[in-house]
Design a protein around this nucleic acid. Structure first.
Lengths: 190, 190
DNA sequence: CGGCAACATATGTTTCAACAGATGTCGTTG
DNA sequence: CAACGACATCTGTTGAAACATATGTTGCCG
């Protein structure tokens, strides 16, 4: 949107967002066009998933937390796969400082449980419940379908190029906060 | 994030988001990786702009509305460049049903004004005030700088390819709502 | 003209994100 | 062990998004 409502400037002929929105002309500047394309794409896809999740009482954020919890459990088949709140915050796709409340909701819904660490009573371990796992299982087909639908027009090579470009693009973001190297904590499976 | 906390699966070596987050392994599936890259990139860039705008009492959404208003004014040098709420909603980068409240805030801040249409008293015309214009002018350098910083590592060709890929990607979104063909309403300038 | 559907905007309510600051805990230092 | 700073989580509050629904308006049909 910065630069959103923009200017006419023939020459640029990608014509993507331009026709999508009420907007008529391609953007003045490839920078702005790329930016708006990113925002708009994210917003559309997010909306699709939000709709899917909300019908099961989840938001995109709480779903994401659930995924993290399950990933952690699968990485630790012996135990419960407990993770600290802090770690959850780090692994979220879009960093959220307010993990407490996300976990609150999951706990209230019986999808996650908390446990205080005895050795360091500041930290709280969070883990997924069987109900949480079965909800994820129940959701899985819909999620896969939606990914498939989103990618209908994309080849695998396209997807890889897109990821590579976005990674480069993102390198310029200022708010690369919360990006500590982090130790390897392999959550297996997907 | 759907598919967010994912799996190991050597072979995919874009390694983008994987290292960005607390996450260690590339994603199982290029689809999911592309998706997460889009979300994450949008979220980082958005955060940068949010910060910039908020220091001047705007959100990304209200800034976007202001841009639309100014674009409309520049397209109509004779008049005030009035636009209906509906039209504003269509032109937003991420579609917002709740234009009323966005305009409420701008009006309260003296950055926009409303006027009822006499011929059809259902519609409300919105236009930018001089204060709104000068705020945009004041903000412009910062916005440009931020775009420049974001694109530091990208060539112009990269940006164009990225836009093209995203446009194709977005074609698969279900929520292509509010995307009426729309008549051409050339807001000139940027 | 009365009724009715389509419309444009406004309002109410619930839910969530964001920021600030509080609480309780640990480790260290003297 | 008292004091202090760093830390992890929690709480309080405010502001905005989401969704449904209400209000007021138009145009059409009979």
């Amino acid at each position: 949107m910065p630069g959103g409502p923009s200017a006419p400037s023939a020459s640029t002929e990608v014509a993507g967002v331009a026709s999508d929105i009420g907007k008529r002309t391609p953007f003045q500047c490839p920078r702005v066009e790329a930016y708006v394309n990113v925002i708009r794409t994210a917003s559309l896809f997010s909306a699709d998933f939000e709709r899917l999740f909300r019908s099961h009482g989840l938001s995109e954020a709480t779903y994401n937390v659930l995924r993290i919890l399950r990933g952690s459990k699968l990485a630790d088949p012996a135990g419960l796969g407990e993770v600290t709140c802090q770690r959850i915050g780090e692994q979220m796709v879009s960093p959220v400082p307010d993990v407490t409340r996300l976990v609150d909701r999951l706990e209230r819904q019986g999808l996650a449980r908390r446990r205080r660490c005895e050795r360091d009573r500041r930290v709280v371990y969070v883990s997924i419940t069987p109900e949480g796992e079965s909800l994820l299982d129940h959701l899985a087909p819909g999620v896969d379908d939606q990914h498939a639908a989103h990618c209908a027009d994309m080849t695998e090579a396209d997807l890889r190029r897109l990821s590579a470009l976005l990674t480069a693009f993102r390198a310029g973001a200022r708010s690369t906060r919360g990006v500590r190297p982090g130790q390897s904590n392999p959550n297996s499976k997907d």
